[in-house]
């Protein structure tokens, strides 16, 4: 038998991800359970904790305050800084503490996403700093971080257009789905994983974060993003509920 034939046979006998269903038995459109809370860090102007499945991110906001260093202040708008930090023991193989190339890039894309939601022109020459700590990582940490950061910014009383939900949509083998877990990101059968984190501003109908790793057709990508937007709208509801319940319950 030729090598090609063996491969074909293997493909035939293997059930596709769509056929076997997701590892954690979720539906394609179903997100992992989420928990959110705000205002638990007394020193911060605003703070939030977000748990998406087994991924936990906390975010703390300082400011608006004097921009530092002074030469970086923007004369006509807010200087937004965003720091993403993966806690060393948040992942199975210890991450080296401190900034990495990955954390620097993520800080930047998260900042770009969040900035779209903020009325930066209201805060000339000042600075807001957003600090994110990923405490436990099981994929989707940048999306959990954006949710936490957006809640923390709102908790800090920064003027914003809307709260910003985020989710990783994508495709595992042949199944287009949302909110990938680490186990799914590591699923390399068939076409393997495609991870597409998005952030979305619901009342502006804008996508503010978009990245992709993997292989996916144009049609499947459009389908995945649409599915992601539906998921974001659900997350958005829970974000609002989190803020309301803090002030309504008492």
């Amino acid at each position: 038998m030729t090598a090609k034939k063996t491969e074909e046979k293997k493909t035939e006998s293997r059930k596709s991800y769509k056929a076997t269903g997701r590892i954690d038995k979720r539906k394609a459109t179903e997100m992992r359970p989420m928990e959110m809370s705000i205002g638990f860090l007394p020193n911060c102007a605003g703070s939030a904790r977000v748990k998406v499945g087994n991924t936990i991110a906390i975010a703390g906001v300082y400011g608006p305050k004097k921009a530092r260093p002074k030469h970086e202040e923007l004369k006509d708008k807010l200087l937004l800084r965003c720091y993403y930090d993966l806690v060393s023991f948040s992942v199975p193989d210890r991450a080296r503490p401190g900034p990495s190339r990955r954390s620097t890039e993520l800080g930047m894309v998260i900042k770009s996403a969040l900035e779209r939601s903020i009325f930066t022109e209201f805060y000339p020459r000042s600075m807001v700093e957003v600090f994110i700590e990923v405490v436990q990582a099981d994929a989707g940490s940048r999306c959990a971080s954006i949710i936490a950061a957006s809640l923390a910014l709102a908790d800090a009383g920064i003027e914003m257009r809307d709260l910003m939900p985020a989710v990783a949509c994508g495709k595992i083998d042949d199944l287009v789905c949302v909110d990938l877990t680490k186990a799914e990101e590591d699923y390399h059968e068939g076409e393997g994983p495609t991870d597409i984190p998005i952030a979305y501003l619901p009342n502006q109908d804008e996508i503010t974060l978009l990245q992709l790793d993997g292989k996916i057709s144009k049609e499947e990508l459009a389908q995945a993003i649409k599915m992601g937007i539906v998921a974001c709208k659900e997350i958005h509801k829970q974000m609002k509920q989190t803020i309301r319940s803090k002030y309504e319950k008492r």
Partner: peptide, 17 residues
């Protein structure tokens, strides 16, 4: 104060009562 105009809607821009 604390609002902005979004199309034909007046929307809140801050957490408020």
């Amino acid at each position: 104060e604390g609002t902005y105009i979004n199309g034909n809607e007046l929307c809140a821009s801050i957490v408020s009562k």
